[in-house]
Nucleic acid binder design. Structure first.
Length: 590
RNA sequence: GCCCCCGUAGCCAAGCCCGGCAAGGCAUCGGACUUUUAAUCCGCAGAUCGUGGGUUCGAAUCCCACCGGGGGCACCA
């Protein structure tokens, strides 16, 4: 039995494919962590440099000059209370400093920035070069660049929303040598007047500052950043700082998701959370992850789809519901498939699949507009426009277009329609099996040859019933169901149908799936008696939709790989960093 | 499971085809420097060349196996 992705039955653009990685304990020492030096900076601040210490002779340095920042840095690192560091640790001469500047290594418990870099750039755009604004501001973020020029130091502070320069003259900045000794990557808070340098760079003059966290590991090259994608995925906490596209992708994803939620709220949809631990994996034909609950002493499966629970809620009277959440499929990895991925599933009572088409195109367009400001998305050399309305074609039409001749949509196995389609499948080098209906063969050709060629966005409608165990039969064509896939740039973006509400028909569809399972199909669905009981309580006409959030995010971010839109993509555990908890997981924990 | 590519210092990397002291840059460390913008200049240090075998007088380089990553294909279907 050969099946295709179209026959997963559920709505999962973003499901899995089998990968080819063999087992084995890795002995790899990741480039990003191997041999990293732990930079040491002193011991405890309080003991390293007691407040109130008097200045000591400055050694061989000329009188009237402080130590170089490098010299100072060395003293800090080894935790020495050296003479040369005393001048900047002595608060006695300046009563206004208070505890803030007693010791820069004293990390505060809280800090209050008063402005972001972006706000400052907005507010002081018209300030002339060399002028001061008279306004004080406190900013905080990571020090990304540092330019020490003797008695003057410039820093580039990134607050995750933008960058602002820190301007630190030795005559103004307290603990100047310490400030110069900050590392690239250190978290710093700085307060002072907003001004522009002679070169016109908006800056905060560092009149006071605090170290908020030190970067003990050196940050990547300030210009080249991180090139190794493996390191980028594994150390996203660094990647987010040094790869602008990474931060941008997750901003786009966030605004996209927020746009979807807003659009659904506007339409009266209620957001719900249904179980992730399923006693029976259902709602899609996919291999699940299996786990075990100790107290109940029974197995659970991580959900492969929330579908059956959401439709129970329609039965329960939540007539417009959606869930935006994680799905787990124990299948292979690829640039378009992740073992855990995010899907929007929604159900609307009194609606059919044509309503779902309208909803799909409008929600997608709204999400694109929220995230990127418009509906036109660049994909490679071309542009994809998500603005409604999207083209609507039947599967038979779109396959016929591809084949260059009219092909039938339905027909019994062995019939003339099936024979005609089988001939076409052979011509297109698509493998088929005896006993398939015409619709089944058509779906196979579509999946293998046509879908990837479609630019779209387009709704491909009307699938064969045997690959859609949860969809309602087509109102006018035997052998088909009212189901569509939305395709954009050759990829399945959404999957929806008029929901099957007839408990008798549903029971027979489950039975057909059970026969497949007995035939060795590990992804076939199993009968869910409680779901049938729910249907027996009455499911009104309902339209359902599943939309792949990662897939849409990939489109809007202009990336070809799902790992670029998932913060922590599933990877093989790094050797030496991921050890299972000792003592076993079957013991009760406290 | 198969095929292709990649793995050299914390980071970016040259060297590999055609075997002969592992180049350069950033960061670090020391020195100079009061309006820089990847600051600049001088100097020091930093490498199990992914791992393990093999060939060789000699291996980052050639061969084999393995580990990790990326891509493609196949299987599941």
């Amino acid at each position: 039995m050969q099946r295709c992705r179209a026959d997963r039955g559920g709505r999962a653009p973003g499901g899995g494919r089998r990968g080819g990685h063999g087992p084995g304990a890795g002995n790899r020492a990741a480039a990003g962590t191997r041999g990293l030096r732990h930079r040491r900076r002193g011991g405890h601040a309080a003991t390293a440099r007691p407040a109130g210490r008097r200045a000591a002779p400055a050694g061989r340095r000329p009188p009237g000059r402080g130590p170089s920042h490098r010299q100072h840095r060395r003293h800090r690192r080894v935790g020495v209370t050296c003479g040369v560091s005393a001048p900047c640790a002595d608060p006695a001469g300046d009563p206004t400093r208070g505890t803030l500047v007693t010791d820069r290594r004293d990390i505060p418990y809280r800090f209050e920035p008063t402005a972001t870099a972006a706000e400052l750039h907005g507010a002081h755009r018209d300030l002339a070069a060399g002028e001061s604004s008279g306004v004080r501001a406190t900013v905080a973020g990571r020090l990304m660049l540092r330019r020490v020029q003797g008695r003057l130091c410039f820093g580039t502070l990134d607050d995750a929303g933008g960058r602002i320069q820190l301007f630190a003259p030795a005559a103004v900045t307290p603990d100047y040598e310490d400030f110069c000794a900050l590392s690239i990557g250190d978290w710093v808070g700085a307060t002072g007047e907003v001004m522009k340098t002679r070169r016109g760079e908006l800056s905060v003059k560092v009149e006071d500052w605090r170290l908020l966290a030190e970067a003990r590991r050196p940050f990547p090259d300030k210009w080249h950043g991180m090139a190794d994608v493996d390191t980028r995925y594994r150390q996203r906490y660094v990647d987010l700082w040094v790869t602008p596209a990474t931060r941008s992708a997750f901003e786009i994803r966030h605004t996209m998701v927020a746009g979807i939620r807003a659009e659904l709220a506007r339409r009266g949809f209620v957001e719900v959370e249904t179980p992730m631990l399923h006693p029976i994996p259902g709602g899609a034909a996919a291999r699940p992850f299996k786990t075990h609950h100790n107290s109940l002493d029974c197995d659970f499966y991580l959900r492969v789809a929330p579908e059956l629970y959401l439709k129970r809620l329609i039965v329960g009277g939540l007539t417009r519901v959606f869930e935006l959440g994680r799905i787990f499929r124990n299948e292979g990895l690829s640039p378009r498939h992740s073992p855990e991925f995010t899907m929007l599933e929604l159900y609307q009572a009194y609606a059919d699949y044509t309503d779902m088409m309208t909803l799909t195109e409008e929600v997608s367009a709204a999400a694109a507009t929220a995230a990127t400001g418009g509906t036109e998305v660049p994909v490679g050399e071309r542009t994809l426009d998500l603005a409604p309305p999207w083209r609507r074609v039947t599967m038979a039409e779109v396959v016929s277009e591809y084949a260059g001749r009219d092909l039938p949509a339905t027909g019994e196995p062995g019939g003339s329609a099936a024979a005609e389609l089988r001939g076409e499948a052979d011509r297109l080098d698509v493998a088929t099996e005896a006993g398939w209906t015409a619709g089944r063969i058509l779906a196979e050709i579509y999946e293998r040859r046509v879908e990837g060629e479609l630019w779209g966005p387009v709704f491909v409608c009307d699938f064969p019933v045997e690959v859609s165990p949860l969809a309602r039969r087509h109102r006018s064509i035997d052998g088909l169901v009212e189901r569509f896939e939305a395709v954009a740039a050759g990829r399945e973006l959404a999957n929806a149908f008029s929901e099957l509400a007839d408990p008798d028909d549903q029971r027979s569809r489950f039975a057909a799936q059970e026969r497949r399972r007995r035939g060795g199909d590990s992804e076939a669905m199993t009968t869910d008696e409680d779901y049938l009981r729910a249907l027996e309580c009455g499911l009104p006409p309902t339209g359902g939709l599943g939309l792949g959030i990662d897939r849409l995010a990939m489109l809007l971010c202009g990336t070809d790989t799902i790992r670029d839109v998932v913060l922590f993509p599933t990877l093989r555990p790094e050797a030496g960093t991921a050890r299972p908890p000792t003592g076993g997981d079957d013991r009760p924990c406290c």
